[in-house]
C-alpha cells in the first residue's frame, strides 16, 4: 500500500477510539509527506467548513503541485457542505490527498455510507481492543516500539495503567526506552521493570473488594479498597457491590439445599450460573447470624457514605473490617 500513491485518493478513518484514529491520520499525513515532501497539508475541523471551503483548499496552489487535506470530526460537517464533499470524493483531483476522520457513532451515517460507495475512498476502521485483548495489544505495541515484553509483565501493566490506550501506548514507549542501554542493546521487558515504573492499580472494581472481604482476606481487601478510594471509585459502588455479594451469598445459602438444578438455582440467587461455584466456596466461612450482621453493617455503611458520616472513606474501611469479622 505504501507504494501506491495517496494522491487522487480519499482515506476515510472511522472508529470511536480517538487515540487510534489520530494515529491512523498521523500515519496518513506522514505518508503524504514521504511521497511529496513539498506538499501543503491543510488540517480543518469539519464543523467550520462552510460551502466552498473544500473547493478552496483543494484547488491547485501557486507554490506546490500537490496538496493534502485532513478533515477531522467529519460527523459535525454542516449539511450544506455534504454535496460538495461527495462530489469531490466521487472524482478527486489527482494532485490532492484527502484524509477524512469520523469520530464513530451514528452521526452523519448517511454521509459515511455514500462516501464508502465512492471508488476512490479507502476506509480504515479503528476498533479498540476488547478489555481481554488489552494484554495482547500492549505486547504488539511494545514490539512496534522495537522491544519485547513477557505476558505477565504486560498483564501487570494493564492492571496498573488501566484501559486508556493512549496511556498504555505511552507506557510501552517509556518502558522500551528504559530497557534500552546506552549501547542500544534491548532486554526483554519483565515484571520487575514494570513494577519499578508502574506500581499500584488503575482499576479496582467494588466487586473485587467484596469478594476478598467475603473470603476473609482482610489485608488484601483493605489494600484494594485503598486503591479504589485513591482512584476515585464512587463509595456507593463499593457498598452496592458488598450488598449484592452478600445478598447472593445469603440467597444461595437458603436455596442450596432445595435440590434445584444449576439454572434454577442461579435464577433464585440472582447471579450468573458460573458464580455458583464461587458462592459455594465463599459460603464455607459463613453462618446465618454472620450474614445477617454483615448485611446490617453494609446497610449502615450505605447510609454513612450518602452523607450520614463525616468521613465516607473511614466508613468503608470500617465496613470491610466488620464484614471480615462476621465470618465464623
Amino acid at each position: 500500500m505504501a507504494s501506491r500513491s495517496v494522491f487522487g485518493r480519499v482515506l476515510l478513518v472511522t472508529g470511536g477510539q480517538e487515540f487510534l484514529s489520530e494515529r491512523a491520520v498521523r500515519a496518513a499525513v506522514d505518508g503524504i509527506a514521504a511521497q511529496a515532501p513539498e506538499a501543503d497539508v491543510a488540517e480543518v475541523v469539519a464543523s467550520s467548513m462552510t460551502p466552498g471551503e473544500l473547493t478552496a483548499i483543494t484547488s491547485p496552489s501557486l507554490f506546490s503541485d500537490t496538496s493534502g487535506v485532513v478533515v477531522r470530526e467529519l460527523e459535525d460537517l454542516p449539511a450544506a457542505s455534504h454535496d460538495e464533499l461527495l462530489q469531490f470524493a466521487a472524482s478527486p483531483s489527482p494532485d490532492v490527498a484527502c484524509v477524512l476522520a469520523h469520530g464513530g457513532g451514528n452521526k452523519a451515517k448517511g454521509l459515511l455510507d455514500k462516501l464508502r460507495a465512492c471508488a476512490a475512498v479507502t476506509e480504515v476502521k479503528t476498533g479498540g481492543p476488547k478489555p481481554w485483548e488489552l494484554t495482547g495489544w500492549v505486547s504488539a505495541e511494545v514490539r512496534q516500539a522495537g522491544g519485547s515484553i513477557t505476558d505477565e509483565a504486560a498483564g501487570h501493566l494493564v492492571a496498573a495503567v488501566g484501559q486508556d490506550l493512549r496511556a498504555l501506548a505511552a507506557a510501552a514507549d517509556q518502558l522500551v526506552a528504559a530497557a534500552t542501554t546506552a549501547e542500544g542493546k534491548r532486554g526483554r521487558l519483565d515484571i520487575e521493570l514494570v513494577r519499578q515504573y508502574f506500581g499500584g492499580r488503575a482499576e479496582v472494581r467494588g466487586f473485587d473488594i467484596a469478594d476478598l472481604a467475603v473470603e476473609g482476606k482482610r489485608a488484601e481487601a483493605l489494600e484494594q479498597l485503598r486503591w479504589a478510594i485513591a482512584n476515585g471509585v464512587a463509595s456507593v459502588l463499593v457498598t452496592s457491590a458488598f450488598a449484592s455479594g452478600l445478598r447472593s451469598l445469603a440467597r444461595y445459602g437458603a436455596a442450596r439445599d432445595r435440590g434445584l438444578g444449576d439454572a434454577d438455582l442461579a435464577r433464585e440467587v440472582g447471579a450468573p450460573p458460573f458464580r455458583l461455584k464461587v458462592l459455594g466456596r465463599q459460603l464455607r466461612g459463613w453462618d446465618a447470624d454472620g450474614l445477617a450482621d454483615a448485611i446490617g453493617a453494609v446497610a449502615r455503611a450505605d447510609l454513612a457514605v450518602k452523607g450520614g458520616a463525616g468521613d465516607p472513606d473511614h466508613a468503608l474501611e470500617q465496613m470491610v473490617l466488620t464484614v471480615v469479622g462476621c465470618r465464623t
Binding site: 452496592s240 445478598r247 446497610a299 450505605d302 450518602k306 452523607g307
Partner: peptide
C-alpha cells in the same frame, strides 16, 4: 429514616427483615 436519607431500598429492607428475624 434510612429510606428518607436515600438508602438503597433493597439493602435497607434486607437489613430490617434480618433484624426482625
Amino acid at each position: 429514616e434510612a429510606l428518607t436519607a436515600n438508602a438503597a431500598p433493597l439493602l435497607a429492607l434486607e437489613s430490617l427483615m434480618l433484624t426482625l428475624r
